[in-house]
Nucleic acid binder design. Structure first.
Lengths: 410, 410
DNA sequence: GTCAATTCATTGCAAGTTGCAACCAATCTT
DNA sequence: AAGATTGGTTGCAACTTGCAATGAATTGAC
């Protein structure tokens, strides 16, 4: 019940300032003490004194004297490139991937492994931990493990609910199991769309100066994440972002989740494929067939195939409706559309924008950028890295120290 | 672009701790230094030293030695009951109200004034400032003026957009005008639903330990506000919360706002009345007539009138759909339904709950409380007071000092 | 009725952090 | 080669915090 903030002791200040310095360092990339000083408002002396122990601990390192200015060259600082690492695991329905990052965020190693359709959770967990083991043995100092999980994910309890298509994970609590396996390494968990959103925020929102970003993960499912001033909105149980189970049709069909007319029923990959396959067998004049898969649709769409265009644009219209609702509800200044559908490209985006523009007040539409994600494969893994880095070194930890202890004990 | 946090100087700590102490004081109501000490984690000595100047400045006062414990009686502290005041103005479509609060939050005086239908904004502004003048003359020290405005309200620019039914306010920027009129008094503005939400948060969410609260203001329009850990989500332009212009029917009628199938088209007071009036003239067996107004409907509903029940429950179903969407999108643990519709009472609420329960996953539904607002008249005014108090004495100000200066200068 | 016990509030003191200013270091310009 | 310029470091004073001792106010026991 104690919602009261904690006061700051003199020691707390130092702690706080250390985090501020590191946050600035991450924000600005490689930069000098001086630059950190002006960005944070702290005295240069304070920055110097704050950085010293960070260098000793191998968290920060000096990376060359740069800059052709007038006086003394400044020494650029950066998060350490070696010595300390962050491992990230992304669990998907049919595969998992593991990546190793240094603190600076360089992706050192990434590998994807398939999950056999009949593999038990326990067995998959064994495979996962074998990979993690080998990384840990090689890297020595691992500061944290970030885990990104798909779908409705009870972050508070760290359990996945309604993991459709993956019944074998039901009842297996991945994160606690990982904690038990690696008691010395902090394990952080995140919903995959939220992780991806963090990456987009870092690489995009900050550049644009956006304050409220909506990330829409559109593909197999429709997920989303709201990022406000760099913080992901997690919701009371960590379940926020289930845009796919938001209804755009009160009297629509009932969805598995119980709701009617869910956005996901109109726009998910499955529904798109189903519609296309059905019409492909009926109508002619299309390169698509009744057994085409998503990649075929992508190709057909980019090549201007009529059927593909029609159906993809239908999806665009519905997706635009979902986005419109979000815009009116949370008033973002940046909307990023990611995951598989980002592959449809600018034409798809324009279609969405057109619909949104029609449905939103002009003064609101003018203030919101709608963009596609760069759609790089490692968006989610990188988000997990950012999450771990933030939890470990920047801002305030998501959970208070005490309750985290309680959690570990219980 | 400087999203980087500011570092904390030694002086900043004191500042921070003062805010923390005051926040604790507000949180716990009247309480002793000792209690503040344990709540904030600050040393008793620090609390004593922090409180002293606050008492000198008339912000805090000692209110009696209470408590029948064992040793020395503790001195209860409270925000000052006199000497410093906060004025609040609520602008509505056909009236405005002004209230005076002391820092403690006691409502000292409140009056409502009608706005003549043909009155110009300038003239109404004259009436408003006359009232404010008299208050200021009487109260001497006014720490801030809080203004609550209805409808889509560009908090960033402090302008109201789309103020349907009140064209006379178009082009008249109330808040800047107030700032110009009272240059010595900070004027804070807020959207009325957001203000009401703040009040509900203080009086409800905190008691329940809720983390994410959705306040739905249902009546003439359908507004909403999302409160996360005591902070209202304002959105990039301060326009967040336009739940009424969220669509629940992709192919529905076009709304004035441009969108289709807006929730407001199904659930606003006007649409409810329209439906009832139409059917009242056709069908019999109801106490309602084709010229009944909202109060009549309220009465008929509570008395179990069939037509009223049917139509109100239809509204409940649509409202439930809107709420369901919010639950899936932002995952609140408390939903409070306020404004006029709160008057429909428990039966109405149960109807909503039933619909929501059907449409939401059980593990989510179980975690969210859905309740009615107490529906007291001063919810919005009190919210404005809370906003001013927070801006002035608690937490960090919404706008950075610099930019506020820039704003005042520009 | 007095004295110990208890609890809240205040005041001395040492530790430690910050900002300022002076100083050192490294580079460019003249 | 000397001065100017800029970045980084160190000495010093001011200040805040926490700890511990002291004071204040009350209860309960003898």
């Amino acid at each position: 019940m104690k919602i009261v903030q904690r006061g700051l002791s003199i020691e707390g200040v130092q702690n706080h300032n250390r985090r501020v310095i590191l946050a600035a360092l991450q924000d600005m990339g490689a930069c000098s003490r001086k630059e950190i000083s002006v960005a944070t408002g702290l005295d240069q002396a304070t920055v110097t004194r704050g950085i010293a122990p960070l260098i000793d601990d191998g968290i920060v390192e000096e990376v060359g004297l740069v800059r052709g200015g007038r006086g003394r060259r400044s020494i650029n600082l950066s998060f350490s490139g070696s010595g300390r690492y962050i491992l990230c695991l992304r669990l998907q329905r049919r595969s998992f991937s593991v990546a190793a990052f240094n603190l600076r965020g360089d992706l050192l190693d990434t590998t994807e492994f398939p999950i056999a359709r009949d593999s038990s959770a326990r067995r998959t967990f064994g495979e996962i931990s074998a990979i993690l083991d080998s990384h840990i043995a090689k890297l020595k100092q691992v500061d944290g493990i970030g885990v990104a999980v798909p779908g409705p994910f009870l972050e508070r309890d760290e359990r996945v609910i309604l993991m459709t298509e993956s019944p074998q994970w039901q009842g297996f609590d991945l994160v606690p199991e990982l904690r038990a396996r690696y008691p010395d390494v902090p394990v952080h968990s995140a919903h995959d769309a939220k992780a991806a959103a963090l990456t987009e925020w870092r690489h995009r929102a900050r550049v644009l100066g956006a304050k409220v970003m909506l990330y829409v993960s559109a593909g197999q499912g429709i997920g989303s994440a709201l990022v406000v001033d760099g913080h992901v909105h997690r919701g009371a149980q960590g379940l926020a972002g289930e845009l796919g189970h938001t209804s755009i049709s009160v009297d629509g069909d009932r969805c598995k989740c119980g709701n009617r007319g869910c956005l996901e029923l109109f726009t998910s990959r499955i529904s798109l494929l189903r519609a296309i396959r059905k019409r492909a067998s009926e109508a002619g004049g299309t390169q698509l067939r009744s057994d085409s898969d998503f990649v075929d649709v992508l190709k057909a769409y980019t090549e201007g195939d009529d059927l593909a265009s029609e159906e993809v644009h239908r999806v665009a219209r519905y997706l635009a409706q979902g986005i419109t609702n979000c815009i009116n509800f949370v008033n973002p200044d940046l909307v990023v559309i990611g995951d598989e559908y980002a592959g449809f490209g600018e034409r798809f985006l324009d279609e969405i924008k057109t619909h949104v523009k029609k449905a939103v007040l002009p003064s609101i539409f003018d203030a919101v950028n709608i963009e596609l994600s760069q759609h790089c494969e490692d968006t989610v893994l990188r988000g997990a890295y950012l999450d771990v880095l933030a939890q470990t070194y920047l801002g305030s930890p998501r959970v208070e120290p005490e309750s985290r202890v309680a959690e570990a004990a219980g």
